[in-house]
């Protein structure tokens, strides 16, 4: 099971807490999936939302607050500091958004905010692109986890760039890697795990499904399947058929 900044987590599924039909259904989805981490957005749900925070704390799994909706280094740093106070955790999922249509990360500001927060004792989970040099800069800034997008947040498109994600895995074999955002189907989540990723973070695909509880369970099963497959040394794809039944001893009829 994955480990982030020295903390072992019970499941490679990281599940968001927004957009569910009700907090009761959200809690059920968490129980059905056995998610290892709950992410929570501070800007839109924070402030005086103590009741909602208590509901999340009641899930009894580690909470990863995020800086969703922040557009600048300063906003993100302030939000991270509020989150640390509110949830009593040094963990922060760092999001600095550049463009509102694609919710594309502002990777330049991200690196700067990651450095400031790491220096301040935070354990940063940066929401980034799969760009190798950006990811390298984030590690230089003090991050020990990288969270590249699969596709834009909420788009449900799956892994847009499997090649990029695979080379990132190969490039940083010892860094905890999480596919964050863009997952729509369990098969997408399984694919991320098959690439050797340590975990998958998703929210909309479960919360906005017609039956969020069933979808949460489906995601957990797919992630488990992908995780086992990655550790089982899968075969290579090949162009020609390779018979799985031995030909030896077949009757010669001609």
């Amino acid at each position: 099971m994955p480990q982030f900044y020295g903390t072992h987590v019970e499941s490679p599924l990281m599940l968001g807490t927004a957009q569910y039909p009700s907090p009761a259904i959200m809690a059920e989805a968490f129980h059905a999936s056995g998610a290892g981490i709950a992410t929570v957005s501070l800007r839109r749900e924070g402030g005086a939302g103590q009741d909602f925070h208590n509901l999340i704390k009641g899930l009894n799994i580690p909470v990863l607050p995020n800086t969703a909706g922040c557009h600048s280094v300063r906003e993100a740093v302030t939000t991270a500091q509020m989150a640390r106070e509110l949830f009593g955790t040094p963990w922060i999922k760092l999001e600095v958004i550049r463009d509102d249509d694609t919710l594309c990360p502002d990777v330049i500001a991200l690196v700067e905010a990651a450095r400031i927060l790491s220096d301040d004792g935070f354990q940063v989970f940066p929401y980034c692109t799969e760009d190798l040099s950006v990811c390298g800069r984030l590690l230089d800034a003090g991050c020990a986890v990288l969270m590249p997008w699969g596709a834009p947040i909420g788009s449900g498109r799956g892994l847009n760039n499997p090649y990029g994600l695979r080379s990132l895995r190969a490039h940083f074999p010892d860094v905890a890697l999480v596919v964050d955002a863009g997952i729509g189907l369990p098969s997408h989540a399984a694919q991320a795990m098959e690439l050797g990723y340590d975990a998958v973070l998703l929210n909309t695909a479960v919360a906005k499904a017609g039956d969020p509880v069933a979808m949460a369970r489906a995601m957990a099963l797919a992630i488990e399947a992908g995780r086992l497959a990655a550790g089982a040394n899968p075969i290579e794809a090949r162009d020609m058929a390779a018979p799985s039944t031995p030909l030896f001893g077949m009757a010669v009829l001609a």
Partner: peptide
């Protein structure tokens, strides 16, 4: 629809 409790 914001999960932020009181009146603001």
């Amino acid at each position: 629809m914001l999960e932020t409790g009181g009146k603001y």
